[in-house]
């Protein structure tokens, strides 16, 4: 029963959550409360762990809650539950898009959507950078009034080196990320970066 409940709860989270991982966490919190799947204190562990481990945040969170509530079987059913809606909906929608690709209205819509998507990715950079490149929110008055303490110079340097590596050497993103993970671990482990 526990395993079925997990599947159903996470299927609903996957179905009604728009905007991916971070935007889905509040919805997840409500459902966890409603069904008593987890202690409140445990939720902050979930937040931390699902954001620092690799992979889609919502999948991380589902696996964590499932494992906590009903062991390995629970982890499997929560994870499948949260992934399934996106999978089914995208199968249907991309099939429809194939069919109406040449329709004038659909083409017009994409003419507007494409530049907006570029803006969307640019805003993702702003969200990812918060708490990493700067302490706190990137878009705030602290940008001008916070002084040097507000910025994280090592992280900014890593970002700049990444851009240079990508443009000048056409380095592979995975290699760059692994290298910067090593740099970050060394600096933090030896106490040079906090």
């Amino acid at each position: 029963m526990k395993i079925l409940l997990l599947f159903w709860v996470f299927f609903k989270i996957g179905l009604f959550g728009f905007g991916g991982g971070l935007a889905m966490l509040p919805l997840m919190y409500q459902s966890i409360q409603q069904f008593g799947l987890m202690e409140q204190a445990e939720f902050s562990n979930l937040l931390a762990l699902s954001q620092v481990t690799p992979g889609p945040i919502a999948v991380n969170a589902a696996t964590y809650v499932g494992l906590n509530y009903a062991g390995f079987g629970g982890a499997v059913s929560a994870t499948i539950g949260v992934m399934l809606p996106a999978f089914i909906i995208m199968l249907i929608v991309s099939r429809m898009l194939d069919k109406y690709k040449t329709n004038r209205i659909v083409q017009g819509a994409f003419e507007g959507i494409r530049p907006v998507t570029v803006g969307l990715v640019a805003s993702a950079m702003i969200f990812v950078s918060q708490g990493v490149l700067v302490k706190g929110s990137l878009i705030s008055m602290s940008m001008f009034t916070g002084g040097m303490d507000y910025y994280n110079p090592i992280a900014i340097l890593i970002m700049v080196v990444t851009v240079v590596l990508m443009l000048a050497v056409k380095a592979r993103p995975i290699i760059v990320m692994l290298a910067m993970a090593g740099v970050g671990a060394l600096l933090s482990g030896t106490g040079l970066m906090t």
């Binding site: 950079m125 990812v128 970002m159 700049v160 990508m166 443009l167 993970a181 090593g182 970050g184 970066m193």
Partner: peptide
């Protein structure tokens, strides 16, 4: 663990740069 936290911070900073190039 400071080593693991540092590795994740390094990756996140790199992702900021990757996103700039992607834009």
């Amino acid at each position: 663990n400071p080593w693991i936290v540092g590795a994740f911070a390094g990756v996140k900073a790199a992702i900021c740069g990757l996103l700039i190039v992607t834009v």
